[in-house]
Design a protein around this nucleic acid. Structure first.
Length: 644
DNA sequence: GTGAAGCACT
DNA sequence: CTCTGGGTGCTTCACC
């Protein structure tokens, strides 16, 4: 129903809304996005434009001739669905000069459609022509279905803006209003409001589509002209051109490839979970003395704290309800067996409803595999995210959860799952950035980092570190990455705040370079107003100088975390690009299929296991050379659980 | 439809 | 004394 894909034209960029509007206006004070003054904004009716229908072989030949002479062209696909796996092409629009555009309808008949698309292959596959577009991954996937492998440099306006303003929205309509003071035609004017009654782009009068799609390509082209100098100004061009743009193609490949899921295993697991959930549910009702909706935090809170009075000091959430989260219930489980049972109930139901019963529904009829969608323009730190389904939060921790991971299997008997992950990537980056001798030498000499930290903080030899000391040290190390506070650590370790503060003091005494690095990072962020990664990716920290202590502390934690988390993301992205290139060059049968922040997953051909392991290992370790060695862990097996 | 609560991962 | 570990996405409930 929508053109341009999930983050394209009319739909909203996924992810949480940014409610801090003031920052938005601070940056572009002269730009009005207030809907109360739309008359100030240009529209298709007030701006001179020339959008043409190209619907005969002669006109297409002429268009293709002109497109072929361009250094760069902007294009956009109109389709029948927001989901590229399900969608059919309705038309393609092109622009290469502001104010002009061309719309090429694609016939409904698949054979005729293919013939028209084929006419544009020489242009789309011409490596000398840069392809400009908004959310190009969508168009690439679409065209791949029609046998077109788009070549040449890419310029994705959505991702350009993601680098320029990571925390703003990258929706084309909003960007047009913000940067061009132009209000594009809304898609609902063509296909109606969403819900039943909404038609597809194919059913819309073609003259209207010409105006809509032409404007789309035209506006995107003008956004490109706006963003290119901004990328340059912020020294983001290299990151854009050498990392983010090549990655678009890699992600399209991963998504198209998909991963096989063992539905039989999930069906069995679902049946087992069903029985177990009912069992636990009844036990809870028996203890409560009545049946109620355990899934309702409101009802559950009333049963636990009003009726059963399991805790007279029950905490409430800011909305006035009893808090019944995991932390609260865990504290109660020693005294009240109902608490443990509720936690069990929640775990089982979560696994069943979120993963076991949903994954089989998401298997594509076309490929028999599950195709996630990676979003490259959501996470403020530079990480990727995964949706429909989210394959970056498949359970691994609990035995039941592990059963789900086992259901991710290779495509056939000739293949195995290979998982390659960076070991302690964020702590290694912290060691490299800070140059801390103790930390760096632990990594470079293969000493367990948590044991090393415990040894220093608790003043014992490496050999005398107990498992309890190591556990605490692990929490401390995580705290370091996240921008530690005494309160946060005390909560995590369940110790008094004073004790936590002492541990932190001790840590900084033993790792002085880490301390000064953190201070410098915050200081730098205060001066620049942003923190940056090793590749210059920025995260603006508008509260870094706030008088509000809470806001400022939050910004300071982000100043610490963003360069670490973001540089790890930079490194994995480069590794992915190089691995993809290597696999193509070597014409491997194996395929890269998933990425999970510090891990890459492959559907690996048995004959290629050794070579793939060696190459992947080498590329990952050397993606971005640092003062501290990077280590990887690579596993192979019959499913994702054993490979990891 | 939207926000909160809760929880899965790194 | 403020009030607190970073980053995501999905499901359910409750309310509009």
């Amino acid at each position: 129903m929508v053109s341009g894909g999930p983050t394209g034209r009319s739909s909203v960029t996924p992810g949480p809304e940014n409610s801090d509007g003031p920052a938005f206006l601070d940056v572009y004070p002269d730009v009005e996005i207030d809907p109360r003054t739309p008359e100030r904004r240009k529209t298709i009716d007030s701006v001179k434009h020339d959008y043409r229908l190209v619907d005969t072989p002669e006109l297409r030949a002429s268009l293709i001739h002109f497109l072929g002479q361009q250094e760069s062209l902007c294009f956009d696909s109109e389709t029948t669905s927001i989901d590229p796996v399900e969608a059919d092409l309705v038309g393609l629009s092109f622009a290469y000069r502001a104010g002009e555009a061309f719309y090429v309808p694609i016939p409904e008949d698949r054979t005729e459609a293919q013939a028209v698309v084929d006419e544009f292959k020489p242009v789309l596959q011409n490596p000398a022509i840069t392809k400009i577009g908004q959310n190009l991954k969508y168009d690439l996937l679409m065209l791949k279905k029609y046998g077109v492998e788009v070549q040449g440099k890419l310029f994705d306006t959505m991702i350009a803006h993601y680098l320029i303003e990571p925390e703003q929205r990258h929706n084309m309509d909003i960007m047009a209003m913000t940067y061009l003071n132009y209000h594009p035609v809304e898609i609902e004017a063509l296909i109606g409001k969403k819900g039943k009654g909404q038609i597809t782009m194919r059913e819309v009068d073609v003259q209207k589509v010409v105006e809509y799609a032409g404007e789309d390509a035209d506006v995107t082209l003008q956004l490109k002209q706006t963003f290119a100098p901004l990328l340059e100004k912020d020294s983001l061009y290299k990151l854009f051109e050498q990392v983010e743009m090549p990655l678009v193609q890699v992600l399209a490949d991963l998504e198209l490839e998909g991963i096989r899921v063992d539905t039989n295993a999930l069906a069995e697991l679902s049946a087992t979970l069903e029985v177990d959930v009912k069992l636990v549910q009844q036990e809870i009702y028996d203890i409560a003395g009545e049946s109620f909706n355990i899934g309702s935090p409101k009802q559950l809170g009333e049963i636990l704290f009003d009726k059963l009075k399991v805790d007279k000091n029950a905490k409430k959430t800011r909305t006035g309800q009893y808090a019944t989260g995991e932390e609260i219930l865990s504290k109660l489980e020693a005294e009240h067996e109902i608490a443990r049972k509720i936690l069990d109930y929640r775990e089982l139901l979560k696994l069943k409803n979120t993963y076991v019963d949903v994954l089989p529904l998401l298997i594509s009829k076309h490929t028999g595999r599950v195709h996630t969608s990676f979003n490259q323009a959501v996470a403020a730190t530079g990480r990727l995210s995964s949706t429909n389904p989210n394959l970056q939060n498949i359970p691994i921790r609990t035995p039941r959860g592990q059963e789900i991971r086992k259901a991710f299997v290779p495509r056939s008997d000739e293949f195995l799952i290979m998982s390659a992950d960076y070991s302690q990537i964020e702590l290694r980056i912290m060691a490299a950035f800070s140059g801390d001798e103790t930390m760096s030498s632990a990594f470079n000499n293969g000493i367990d980092i948590h044991t090393q930290t415990a040894s220093k903080v608790f003043h014992v030899g490496l050999g005398e570190v107990t498992s309890e000391m190591r556990r605490k040290a692990k929490t401390i190390n995580f705290g370091i990455i996240y921008g530690i506070s005494a309160f946060g650590l005390s909560q995590r370790l369940k110790i008094p705040r004073k004790e936590a503060a002492q541990i932190i003091d001790e840590y900084f005494a033993e790792f002085p370079a880490v301390k000064s690095y953190m201070d410098q990072t915050i200081e730098k962020a205060r001066g620049f107003g942003y923190a940056e990664t090793i590749l210059g990716r920025r995260r603006y920290l508008r509260d870094i100088n706030s008088r509000n202590m809470t806001d400022r502390m939050f910004a300071e934690r982000n100043a610490i975390n963003a360069p670490i988390q973001g540089s790890a993301a930079d490194m994995l992205k480069i590794a992915m690009i190089q691995i993809n290139e290597m696999m193509r060059r070597e014409q491997m049968k194996s395929k890269m299929i998933l990425t999970v922040h510090d891990e890459l997953v492959f559907d690996a051909h048995r004959d290629e296991i050794d070579a793939l392991r060696e190459r992947v290992d080498h590329i990952m370790k050397n993606a971005i050379p640092m003062a501290v060695k990077m280590e990887t862990g690579i596993g192979v097996g019959e499913n994702w659980l054993v490979a990891h």
